[in-house]
Amino acid sequence: MTIDQSLRDALLEDVPAITEIYAHAVLNTVATLDTEQPTIASQTEWFHHHDKDHPVIVAVQDGVVVGWGSLSVWSPKQGYRTTAEASVYIAPDHQGRGIGTALTLELIRRARTVGLHVIVARIASSNEVSLRVARHCGFLLVGTMRESGFKFGEYVDVDVLQRLINTE
């Protein structure tokens, strides 16, 4: 089975696996500046903030969710409804195998399908792997919000990237 064939929409029953993958990033990395350990309840609430136009997708291997990606609302203001923010997280023992790239490319495809115009990604400047994946998938650096985060005892610079979607 190729990676592409194992991508699908997330189901409510995937939330525990999504939570576990996210919790690792929360507790150990600056991939997210979340510092509160997520619970199945909090991730279920997050899951319900997504819909047809703001999908959550998962990468599945041998029946196990090994990564997930989402397009979330960028702003509740209606003038921003054509913009979404992308998130991609991979289980630690499945990183470095192209799953993040596959999920990101699928999010771009979904964004095009639902008529989004821009995908924004916020990535810590020190997170070289995620920055490389985003750039490889056509995201361009907008700029850096210097020291706008704080985690593990230090300020974190956050890069803002964007991918314009060709809706033609």
Binding site: W74, K77, G79, Y80, R81, T82, T83, H117, V118, V120, L141, V142, G143, T144, M145, R146, E147, S148, F150, G153, Y155, V160, Q162, L164
Partner: peptide
Amino acid sequence: DAGTIREVGYKFGKWLDMCVLQLVLPCLP
């Protein structure tokens, strides 16, 4: 200036670019 996000908004029939600016204050966490 921290960067400009192109065409991130749409209002009155036009795509809108948004400038992100930041002021860093000298405080300690």
